[in-house]
């Protein structure tokens, strides 16, 4: 990582308390452009809270966050951010919306009345995102008719519509099978290879360690340790050699 590169996110000494309980204590880290970061931890470790703080959905009890070099109050370039929330895959199957409509909702600069007659530009960016996520054949399907893996791709396609610089995913592989999970991680690698910064929150230690470039381990409200992919590979190789 270039030392002169400006971080996309700077978290400085973040504390978060809910009622009288510490949820996060003294969390500090930076996220640089092009990184692929995993935040892992068990249930109740505070990883979803940390993610919500990173995105400005929750305000820390103490500490500062700079998001694209700005405090949240001054940040308005939401098209730079793609977010795939945790429960959105398990949404009500009766929600009356098609894949096209959900992906289209990621287009942030819609004009007055465009919901009645979508413009050409909007159609082309939605089509591009559907194609990128490999779900163009599902465009007219209702979201409730899709499998968990397909729904996940729909919300990623939605996040990609605005061509974000940062993609944030909360527990994206929950409830999907192993084969779909493998395809999903391959898709994320492709996005990261073209320069997109990705933050992935998961409890799946094995998959995240295998896939991401840097892991933040959350344990009992604090970042326990940080590991980089090349360091983990060295440890893994040493284990293999000692086994032989």
């Amino acid at each position: 990582m270039s030392i002169n590169m400006q971080p996309l996110i700077q978290c400085k000494n973040i504390f978060f308390r809910y009622d009288a309980t510490d949820v996060l204590r003294d969390i500090s880290f930076d996220v640089f452009p092009g990184e692929y970061i995993g935040i892992i931890g068990g249930n109740g470790s505070g990883k979803t809270t940390l993610l919500k703080i990173i995105l400005g959905l929750l305000h820390p009890t103490k500490g500062d966050i700079l998001f694209f070099d700005q405090p949240f109050a001054d940040f308005h370039d939401w098209h730079k951010v793609g977010y795939v929330p945790q429960h959105v895959f398990r949404n009500d199957v009766n929600f009356p919306a098609t894949v096209w409509e959900i992906v289209e909702s990621g287009h942030l600069d819609a004009r007055f009345g465009e919901w009645l007659v979508p413009g050409k530009k909007k159609c082309s960016v939605v089509e591009r995102s559907l194609k990128q996520a490999g779900i163009e054949h599902l465009a007219s399907k209702r979201i409730g008719e899709l499998s968990g893996g397909e729904r996940q791709r729909v919300f990623i396609a939605r996040a990609l519509v605005s061509r974000p610089e940062l993609l944030v995913l909360d527990e994206p592989t929950t409830g999907i099978d192993a084969a779909t999970e493998e395809q999903f991680y391959a898709f994320l690698r492709t996005l990261n290879n073209v320069g997109m910064t990705i933050i992935l929150v998961s409890h799946d230690l094995e998959a995240v360690e295998r896939e991401v470039k840097r892991v933040l381990y959350l344990n009992h409200c604090v970042i326990d340790r940080v590991s980089k992919k090349n360091e983990r590979e060295v440890v893994l190789n040493e284990k293999k050699v000692s086994n032989i």
């Binding site: 977010y83 959105v88 287009h107």
Partner: peptide
């Protein structure tokens, strides 16, 4: 679009 997103997921709407 805002109402649609808000109905789909409040957090998703806020981050949009």
């Amino acid at each position: 679009r805002e109402l649609f997103l808000f109905s789909l997921d409040e957090d998703l709407a806020a981050v949009s």
